[in-house]
Design a protein around this nucleic acid. Structure first.
Length: 516
RNA sequence: GACCCCAUCGUCUAGAGGCCCAGGACAUUGCCCUUUCACGGCAAUGACGGGGGUUCGAAUCCCCCUGGGGUCGCCA
C-alpha cells in the first residue's frame, strides 16, 4: 500500500504527478494498492477547488488511485480535515504517556528565541521552555487565552542545548533506511520538539501523516527528497506511538534550469498549464518517468503500463533532474505524430483549443473589432499560440518601458509577474486592479507600460483590452509568456534609454525621468 | 551557518574494476530529402569537478576538498 498525499493549496503541481507516478508504478507492479489522501490541515490555504483540480489532473494523466476521497475505500475518510477526532485522540494519548507536552509560547517569544540562538550560532529551534514547566500551569495559561500547541518530546542526549533536565547519558541517534540510498542517521540534537497540534486544534503535517499512514496501512512512503530531514521526527513519532514505521524512499526533486527546486517562478509547474498548452498526458507521464528512471534496454518512449511493468528501485537515479521543456516538447511531438491518428488530433484540437467555452470568451472580448470570420483569425491568433511574441521573432527591444533602462524595465516586469502570481482570482476585474496597482506603485503611466505588455503577450499592437485579454488567457499562460519575453530582454545590449531605434548617449537623461 | 542528500556531454542519462582515449536521447551545427517550413535520414561538436589513496588496472571502490541541492515554520 502506497499513497500520494497532496496538499490542496493552489494549482495542481507537476511535482505531485511525478511523485504519484513513482508510487503508482511501485505498487501496481507488485499488485499493491494506491491511495490518495488530501492533506488539508492548513486551514487558511486549503481549498476544495484546488482539491478538485488535483484529482482531475492526476486522472487526466491516467494515474488512478484505488482509495481516495472521491472513490472511498476501507481506510477513509481520505481528507485530513475529516479525521480531526482521530488526531486529537492520538495527541491526547501522547500527552498522557508523557511523549508530548502542551506549550503556550507565543509566536513572538519563538521568534525571539530563534534570533538569540542564531546570534549564539546555535541551531534555531524550540528551546523546550514548556517542556520543563508544570503542565497544569501551562494548561492554565492556555485556558486564559494563550496559544496552545502540543509538541513532541524528542529524546535528548548529552551536549544538546535543548536537553535541560531530560538529557540522557548516551547520544540519541535516530536512523532509518532510505531504500534509494542507505541507512541514514541523525542525532536528535538536530531535531526540533516539533509541533504536532496547532493552536487551532488542527494537526500538523508531521502528526497527521504518521497517524494516517499507520492507520491506513501504508507500507512504503515514496516522497520528495525535501522530506529527508524531517523523517527522523516521523520515525520518533512512530516510536512514541509504539508503531512500526513504513519503508522510506526519497526521490530527488525536479529542478529549474539553474538546479534549484522546480518553481512556478522559473518554470511552468501547473498541470493545468500543461494541459492547456497542448501537452499530451501520456507524453507528460512518459517524460516524468524519464526524470528519475531508465529502462534497462535504454528505451525512452514508454507507456504508463510499460513503466509499471519494468519499474525497479535499482534503476532510479538520484541526480536532481532539470525539467527540460524542450525535450518534453520533442516527446510530445512524437506522441502526436506516432500515437494519435488524424481523427484523434482533430478531436483533440476541438477539445483543447477550439472548445466552445474558450471561443466564447474570445468572441465576447473581440467581436467588436472584426467584421467577418477571417478577421477573427488574423486578429486573435495569439489566443492559439504558446508564445506569440517570442515565436514571432521579436528581439525584446520594443518590450522596454519608455523612459526606463533595461535593468529598470526588467525589475518592473518581474514585479508585475509577482503581483500576477499572488492575485487571488484571475478575473477581468482583478487583473485590472493588479495592473493599476502595479502602475501606481511603480509610478508608471499605463500609456507607457501597457503597449510593451500587450506586445509580449500577444505580439500585436491591436488587441482587446489588456485585463480582459489576460483573464481569458489565464494566469499560467500570461506568466509563461512574460517569462519567455523577459529572457529576450535580458539578452538585449545595455542601452541606457529605451526608445527603440534611438541611440542614447551615455549621459542620457533617461534616469532623471524615472521618478515623476 | 548547522545538519543531510547528490556529483558522467549545455540537458536527461548508460556505465555496478579491464568490453570506455566513455554509449544513447534532447538541444546545437552541417549535409541529404524537399517548391517552402516541418518531419525523416546521415554526420559533427560535446562530459567522467579537483586531489589523494586501494589495485597490475578506476568513470566505476575509499578519503578529503570543491560544487550543486534540500531542511532548519503553529506550510505541506
Amino acid at each position: 500500500m502506497v499513497r500520494i498525499a497532496p496538499s490542496p493549496t493552489g494549482d495542481p503541481h507537476v511535482g505531485t504527478a511525478y511523485i504519484a507516478l513513482f508510487n503508482y508504478a511501485f505498487t501496481k507492479q507488485r499488485g499493491g494498492k494506491f491511495l490518495l489522501r488530501i492533506e488539508d490541515t492548513d486551514r487558511q490555504r486549503s481549498t476544495r477547488q484546488s482539491e478538485d483540480m488535483i484529482l482531475a489532473s492526476l486522472k487526466w494523466l491516467g494515474i488512478q488511485w484505488d482509495e481516495g476521497p472521491d472513490v472511498g475505500g476501507p481506510n477513509g475518510p481520505y481528507r485530513q480535515s475529516e479525521r480531526l477526532d482521530i488526531y486529537r485522540t492520538h495527541v491526547d494519548q501522547l500527552v498522557e504517556t508523557g511523549k508530548a507536552y502542551w506549550c503556550s509560547c507565543t509566536a513572538e517569544r519563538l521568534d525571539a528565541v530563534r534570533k538569540e540562538q542564531t546570534a549564539r550560532k546555535e541551531n534555531p529551534g524550540y528551546d523546550g521552555r514548556c517542556r520543563f514547566r508544570d503542565p497544569t500551569e501551562v494548561k492554565a495559561e492556555i485556558k486564559g487565552g494563550a496559544p496552545g500547541v502540543v509538541r513532541l518530546k524528542i529524546p535528548r542526549g548529552p551536549g544538546d542545548p535543548k536537553a535541560g533536565a531530560d538529557a540522557s547519558s548516551s547520544p540519541q541517534l535516530v536512523s532509518f533506511v532510505d531504500h534509494l540510498r542507505k541507512e541514514l542517521e541523525f542525532n536528535t540534537k538536530e531535531v526540533d520538539d516539533q509541533v504536532l497540534q496547532k493552536s487551532d486544534g488542527f494537526p500538523t503535517y508531521h502528526l497527521a501523516n504518521v497517524v494516517d499512514d499507520h492507520l491506513m496501512g501504508v507500507t512504503h512512503v515514496f516522497r520528495g527528497e525535501e522530506w529527508i530531514s524531517s523523517t527522523p521526527k516521523h520515525v520518533l513519532l512512530y516510536r512514541a506511538f509504539g508503531w512500526e514505521p513504513p519503508e522510506f524512499a526519497h526521490l530527488s526533486l525536479l529542478r529549474n534550469s539553474d538546479k534549484s527546486k522546480v518553481s512556478k517562478r522559473k518554470n511552468p509547474v501547473s498541470l493545468n498549464w500543461f494541459k492547456e498548452a497542448g501537452y499530451l498526458p501520456d507524453a507528460l507521464v512518459n517524460y516524468l518517468g524519464t526524470m528519475a528512471f531508465t529502462f534497462e534496454d535504454g528505451r525512452e518512449i514508454f507507456s504508463l503500463q510499460d513503466f509499471v511493468d519494468h519499474f525497479t528501485l535499482d534503476r532510479v537515479s538520484l541526480n536532481g533532474p532539470v525539467f527540460d521543456l524542450k525535450k518534453l516538447l520533442w516527446l510530445n511531438g512524437r506522441y502526436l505524430r506516432e500515437k494519435r491518428n488524424d481523427q484523434q488530433i482533430v478531436q483533440y484540437l476541438k477539445e483543447r483549443l477550439f472548445n466552445d467555452d474558450y471561443l466564447l470568451q474570445i468572441v465576447k472580448i473581440a467581436k467588436e473589432r472584426f467584421e467577418k470570420s477571417e478577421d477573427f483569425v488574423s486578429y486573435a491568433p495569439w489566443f492559439f499560440s504558446a508564445q506569440p511574441y517570442v515565436e514571432g521573432g521579436g528581439d525584446g527591444a520594443d518590450l522596454l518601458i519608455r523612459g526606463k533602462t533595461k535593468k529598470e524595465t526588467l525589475a518592473l516586469w518581474e514585479a508585475l509577474v509577482e503581483r500576477i502570481d499572488v492575485a487571488l482570482v484571475f478575473s477581468h476585474d482583478n487583473v485590472d486592479v493588479v495592473l493599476k496597482a502595479w502602475c501606481e506603485a511603480s509610478a508608471l503611466s499605463p500609456k507607457d507600460a501597457f503597449m510593451p505588455l500587450r506586445l509580449m503577450l500577444t505580439a500585436k499592437k491591436a488587441t482587446p483590452g489588456l485585463p480582459e485579454s489576460m483573464s481569458v488567457l489565464g494566469r499560467e499562460r500570461v506568466r509563461t509568456r512574460m517569462r519567455a519575453a523577459l529572457e529576450l530582454i535580458k539578452k538585449l545590449p545595455e542601452i541606457p534609454a529605451s526608445k527603440p531605434g534611438e541611440i542614447a548617449p551615455a549621459s542620457s537623461p533617461a534616469k532623471t525621468t524615472t521618478t515623476p
